[in-house]
């Protein structure tokens, strides 16, 4: 790691720890195994979104040329969002690509991700299936996103989830044992049991 990158990261740690967001438990930042090149971030699902109350862990890799190149960030917690891959957690966000500026910090990145969770951009999708659902069936999108938040991010449960759990159970009884693929199949097929089954069959 270059000198500039190390000084910067150390400074940014101080900045994040002192920030209001940390005091309100909105964001968190810590190193992976005492190593400043690989960090772990955490953001809380913003209010009035399907992600409300969820805890989202992020994988952050600091490049050798930081801060002149952006950090590489992806979601470790599975999330249902048009601009985030439901499979890999890869993020489509301009400031993590060509709109990065050296004066930006990890705190800006974490806050921008929170903003992205509040305001998706379905016309610039990372996950085409989710983006289509977002545009064509906004109701199903919202309940699916909050179901994922409940299952993967410890967000609170609501009434709608009973129906979804029932469908998951039915699929399981048909012999589909892998939970994640059952959730993905049903979510991708707008919770149509028949379509999800066909999706899962080889």
């Amino acid at each position: 790691m270059s000198n500039i990158a190390l000084t910067r990261i150390q400074r940014e740690f101080k900045e994040v720890i002192k920030s209001d967001e940390v005091k309100n438990c909105q964001i968190k930042l810590e190193p992976f195994e005492d190593n400043f090149t690989h960090l772990k971030g955490e953001i809380i699902g913003p209010p009035d979104t399907p992600y409300q109350g969820g805890k989202y862990t992020l994988d952050i890799v600091i490049p050798e040329t930081y801060p002149f190149n952006p950090p590489k960030v992806k979601f470790l917690t599975k999330i249902w969002h048009p601009n985030i891959s439901s499979q890999t957690g890869a993020i489509c966000l301009d400031i993590l690509k060509d709109q990065w500026a050296a004066a930006m910090t990890l705190r800006t990145v974490l806050l921008s991700l929170q903003a992205l969770m509040s305001a998706a951009e379905p016309d610039d999708p990372q996950d085409a299936v989710v983006a289509t659902q977002f545009k064509q069936h906004p109701e199903i999108f919202r309940s699916t996103a909050s179901f994922w938040a409940y299952v993967y991010a410890e967000a609170p449960r609501n009434e709608k989830m009973k129906e979804y759990e029932e469908k998951l159970k039915q699929l399981q009884e048909m012999g589909f044992h892998e939970k994640n693929s059952r959730i993905t199949a049903l979510s991708s097929k707008n919770w149509d049991l028949q379509a999800a089954m066909e999706f899962l069959l080889p």
Binding site: I4, F68, A102, A103
Partner: peptide, 13 residues
Amino acid sequence: RFCETCWCQHFEV
């Protein structure tokens, strides 16, 4: 405003 070293590294990248 930034220092000369940082500008130079930015340009290099």
